[in-house]
Every structure is written in structure tokens, then in C-alpha cells.
């Protein structure tokens, strides 16, 4: 569902490794299924751990030796990093690949400072613009200050650090106030796995109630409603899944099924989202 083309430059912000999967697993899969070479650069994570993550996503690095490489960043100099990426990308082209897919941990920038980070992101964008590469930069929310994260949002063209999932029919963003998720689009059985994953990570991330803004949902089927209810009923006592701005017909469906009385679920219509 990711579908990235050479030249694109995205980012993913995460609080635990499970949140990388929805973005990175399709990113790597697509490259291997297509005609790209894949480079995964780690910083604080041991390469063996990253290799383990890939295996967990159903990607066997051994089976793609020479095509999928996991390596540790050997430098903190943005110029050297981009030079190495440029060389790897052009070598991939010479070997007959369409482009280099790069993903890397950006935690080094916390040590080096914002100027280095900006220099890297700007230079790497120039490399991507030449059409030989594309990339997803990984930002660990636990180490980056919120100010830096919102700055990064500007640097990653057309991307959004709060974006959890960007499918053909559904977009899932994290929200900070109220804490939870914003859903935009249509939810059917094809999107349920992504929704369930995003809900589970919001439940792990937030200590209290988890809000889901339904105001831009134009369609949701029974399987989507079930994913919401299952998440709500699995919450510990005292926590709720709060559905905000629920469209009238969706509220009616929830009532018909009897899920308006499900433990842990609160359904609010209209603009009740702002009146707590």
C-alpha cells in the first residue's frame, strides 16, 4: 500500500520498533519485488537487530544477499554520508537496478545537532531529485525533541511525521491533542489490519484514553467497526477508546449492532471532540 517512486523522500516517526513495520515492511518488499536495491543503515541499533526486524516482517536478508544490505553508519559527517549514498546509488544503477531504496536511523543527528541534520536532509534530497534513489528517514520520538520533529515535517516533502499509514483509500495519522488517531477516508476489510495495528500502537503509546477522530470517515464497514470495538473491549478498566465526531449513519450502525454499550467504548457525534 506504500508505493514509492524514485525521487520520493519520506520519514517515519516511531516510539517503538513495531511502528516501523507499516512503513518499512512495504518499502522493502516493494523494492525487492520490483527492480530496486535496498540499503538499511542503522545508528544505535545493532545491524543484527535490524536484520531480525526484517525477518519478522517476512523478509529474509540472506535470500537477498547482494541486493538487500544492512550496515552501520560509519560517520557523523553529513557530506560523507551523502557521498556514500550517492556512490551506492550509482553503483546500483550500473548493476542494472532501477534505483536505490534507502532507509536509515537518524538518531545520530541528536548528537550532531540540528544544523548537521538540516544539511543532510537537504543534500540527500538533491540526490533523490536526480532520480537514482528514494528514502525513508527514521526518527525515534523518544530521542528527538518535538520541535525538531515538526521542523523535519517541512524538510520531508509532502510527508508528515505523524502519518502512520497512507493507503489508497485510508490515511491514518497520530494526534497529540486529544491523544490518539485521526482517520481519513474509507475503512473496509482491506484496511482493517492497518487500522488494528495503528490502534494497538496508540494504546501502547498513550497512558489514558485513546481518541479516534472519525470526522473524515466517509465509509466504514462491519469489519472496521469490529476492529474499533475489539480494541475498546481489550482496554484495562478505567481506560476508554473514545470515538469523536462520529458521522450520524455510523453512530446508527454502532447502535443497531449494540456496540454502543460495549465496555471501554465511547461514541460521540458532531463536534463533541472539543468539549471534554
Amino acid at each position: 500500500m506504500l508505493r514509492m517512486a524514485p525521487g520520493e523522500h519520506r520519514s517515519v516517526a516511531f516510539s517503538d520498533e513495531a511502528e516501523l513495520e507499516p512503513v518499512l515492511a512495504p518499502f522493502v518488499h516493494e523494492g525487492l519485488a520490483g527492480r530496486d536495491k535496498v540499503l538499511y543503515v542503522t545508528d544505535v541499533t545493532h545491524p543484527a537487530v535490524a536484520t531480525g526486524l526484517l525477518r519478522g516482517w517476512g523478509i529474509d536478508p540472506d535470500a537477498h544477499a547482494g541486493r538487500l544490505e544492512v550496515r552501520t553508519l560509519g560517520t557523523s559527517d553529513p557530506d560523507v554520508m551523502v557521498a556514500q549514498l550517492t556512490e551506492t546509488a550509482y553503483r546500483a544503477r550500473d548493476e542494472g537496478y532501477r534505483a536505490l531504496r534507502f532507509t536509515g536511523e537518524m538518531s545520530w543527528a541528536v548528537r550532531e545537532g540540528t544544523d548537521s541534520l538540516t544539511a543532510f536532509e537537504t543534500k540527500v534530497q538533491a540526490l533523490f531529485d536526480s532520480g537514482v534513489a528514494m528514502g525513508v528517514c527514521q526518527y525515534d520520538r523518544r530521542v528527538f525533541p518535538p520541535v525538531t520533529l515538526s521542523e523535519l515535517q517541512r524538510l520531508h516533502r509532502g510527508t508528515d511525521v505523524n502519518l502512520e499509514f497512507d493507503g489508497a483509500l485510508l490515511r491514518i495519522r497520530r494526534s497529540v491533542d486529544p491523544p490518539g488517531l485521526e482517520l481519513d477516508g474509507e475503512i473496509d476489510a482491506n484496511a482493517v489490519d492497518e487500522l488494528t495495528r495503528a490502534l494497538a500502537s496508540a494504546v501502547r503509546r498513550e497512558p489514558g484514553d485513546v481518541h479516534v477522530d472519525m470526522g473524515r470517515i466517509s465509509f466504514i464497514d462491519l469489519s472496521g467497526l469490529r476492529a474499533l470495538v475489539d480494541t475498546a473491549t481489550s482496554l484495562k478498566q478505567g481506560r476508554s477508546l473514545v470515538l469523536d465526531r462520529v458521522p450520524e449513519h455510523v453512530a446508527q450502525l454502532i447502535g443497531l449492532i449494540g456496540w454502543d454499550k460495549a465496555p471501554g467504548l465511547r461514541v460521540r457525534g458532531g463536534d463533541a471532540r472539543w468539549s471534554r
Binding site: 476489510a189 465509509f219 464497514d221 458521522p247 450520524e248 449513519h249 446508527q252 450502525l253
Partner: peptide, 15 residues
């Protein structure tokens, strides 16, 4: 609202 409900019904029947 009625159109949305009918669309849900048709979607579920089609599933």
C-alpha cells in the same frame, strides 16, 4: 444518511 446506510448494506451483502 439513507444513501450511506444503503451503501453499507450493499457492501456487506456483496462481501
Amino acid at each position: 444518511e439513507s444513501a450511506s446506510l444503503l451503501a453499507v448494506a450493499a457492501h456487506e451483502a456483496a462481501r
